[in-house]
Nucleic acid binder design. Structure first.
Lengths: 336, 336
DNA sequence: TTGAAAGCGCTAACAC
DNA sequence: GTGTTAGCGCTTTCAA
């Protein structure tokens, strides 16, 4: 692979590789290289279309100009959009991004984390799975820049970018309450992850705030690794069982989709028989018929924030704060 | 960053780094290292939790164990799924994946390609943009493993994984014809890319085959960089203009989505007023109401095939064939 | 059977 | 002002 190296430039100009390196790294002034020499070197670099070999440079400097992005599943629209914005913002600053789908499984996530550390990633943007707390903590204590996204570990003081999940859930239920629904169910994941607990808590708080009676039968907690098939089947079962229920709040995109399928199978009309609100937006919710009200996250801003934070950490800039909690946005549509 | 290096193992066992390297690279037999030594080194590597520094190794061997994946936009569900399957299959073989969204723009794609070459990517899986033909050709002639996906350059003999686009378009129109629709429009992109030309050609062939009269007004070619807003507006305009039209074939996922929006604005019922078939599946098409008939691509198989091909090329295995053309799958739903 | 040493391309002390 | 040199962690030739 005949990529031009610093040597080629040195030979071309008739000078040592050191001088070339200094000039190309913008240390010409500092090293007091003559303006003429600087000019000749820059011209040659330009002419030969030189780019440093990032691998070699990385070995020497310990910097790879690459970020690792850990998400549950890159094909999930929420994470796909997050990835897009992370990529875009990183690219602006000359960074590339490696992505890793953890499937929200600790074993896979931790293996990937181990792997990535041996590839000199400059920073880690992580949507953490349960069970990777220790490994993330280790990473941070090794001095690696880490930013958690979408969720975090409440007992770890690690930089993170999330939304106010409780507020999001509260506003979803408040919307239903304001439209007169009084028998509001919830479908969520039986997960101990903070974002899920917060959403559940928000739901309960909102019931209370609007004087809606709590009814355990209207809460469905699915295993986190449920297939859409299983999810649909269980939701269907709940719908048929809880004949009074007049609205459902789904705590994730994925559950919302399964829910729509179940509602269709049950031949219920939305919102006449059953109103619906889901967490996280998607094309289906936006353009489906009827369109579905959602609590959406400002994914673009979250992605940008995560990258800016990680770059700040890489450059060892002082960090004003460690927690960035965005506000969820309620999108009212036809399903309520 | 105190990652254990080959030196640590050498020191631990009391042997040179060379010997360690030999054993760890499976050359113990070849180099006739004693079984006992081999055992001790392997034990130490295990105990110290050793992994090679891939950057250092990459510098020496020229292999990074990393693939570059170029797609139009990672947040587009088609490409997001492709990415997922590519990642999965690559991971099985110890490869990681860097992704690059080209936005289907030659300038960005080529800049990224240049960038990636300096990061020693072992192989390139590329959904090519128009205008990157020369650069891709150069890459191949430098001996870099390249696999094109979803589309290819007809006058370049480069390994590629696609589907039979003509057949896909034909089957979509045939479906409409079989249901009695005779005034079938098409919304496509004014692109010179092969996959688009083939889809258009398939449409025309199918009209002919089913004795449907061609009508230029029922063909809408949108600029490739059209926003969904613009797409929707133009499709709406066509729907209002072509009052006779009883069905539309959308040649991409993206156009299909914009089309549904336009149809909704026009207050047409699907399929009573207007039947719909789109290329590429999506959650919206599958679960929306009414569900939309589509010509879908076996994305998983295509992703797997691309990775297996590229790995074969990296390992310099003989390649039985260069073209892998999968069959599109027609999914008949409510919209027809 | 094992080790010494060179070198991948680049950077950065330290010389001169 | 510019060059010499060492070395990042690893592989591999050659020598012992």
């Amino acid at each position: 692979m005949p990529l031009v190296s610093i040597k080629d430039i040195a030979r071309d100009v008739g000078v040592s590789t050191t001088t070339v390196s200094f000039v190309l790294n913008g240390k010409a002034r500092e090293k007091r290289i003559s303006a003429e020499m600087k000019g000749r070197i820059e011209e040659a670099a330009q002419r030969l279309n030189y780019r440093p070999n990032e691998v070699a440079r990385g070995l020497r400097t310990g910097q790879s100009h690459t970020l690792a992005l850990f998400v549950e599943d890159i094909s999930n629209p929420f994470f796909a959009h997050l990835a897009r914005h992370v990529e875009q913002e990183a690219y602006q600053s000359g960074y590339t991004v490696m992505f890793c789908s953890t499937e929200n499984e600790a074993s896979k996530a931790n293996r990937l984390l181990f792997l990535m550390q041996h590839r000199q990633m400059d920073g880690f943007i992580i949507v953490p799975t349960p069970g990777m707390q220790q490994e993330v903590e280790d990473l941070v204590s090794k001095g690696k820049p880490v930013v958690l996204v979408d969720r975090h570990f409440p007992d770890l003081d690690i930089c993170h970018v999330t939304i106010d999940n409780r507020e999001g859930a509260r506003s979803a239920v408040a919307l239903l309450a304001s439209k007169g629904y009084r028998k509001v169910g919830m479908v969520t994941l039986a997960s101990q992850q903070i974002q899920m607990l917060e959403r559940e808590q928000g739901y309960l708080e909102a019931l209370e705030a609007h004087g809606i009676e709590f009814h355990g039968g209207r809460i469905l907690r699915l295993p986190s690794d449920a297939t859409d098939h299983l999810a649909t089947a269980n939701i269907l079962e709940m719908i048929r069982r809880e004949k009074d229920m007049d609205a459902i709040f789904f705590t994730t995109n994925f559950l919302g989709v399964s829910g729509l399928e179940a509602i269709r199978v049950a031949s219920k009309r939305i919102p006449a028989d059953l109103a619906v609100v889901s967490f996280d937006d998607s094309v289906l919710f936006r353009l489906g018929s009827p369109s579905i009200s959602v609590v959406s996250q400002p994914i673009r801003e979250m992605g940008y924030a995560a990258v800016r934070l990680i770059l700040g950490m890489i450059r060892k800039e002082p960090m004003p704060q460690k927690k960035f909690i965005f506000s969820p946005e309620l999108q009212v549509r036809e399903s309520t």
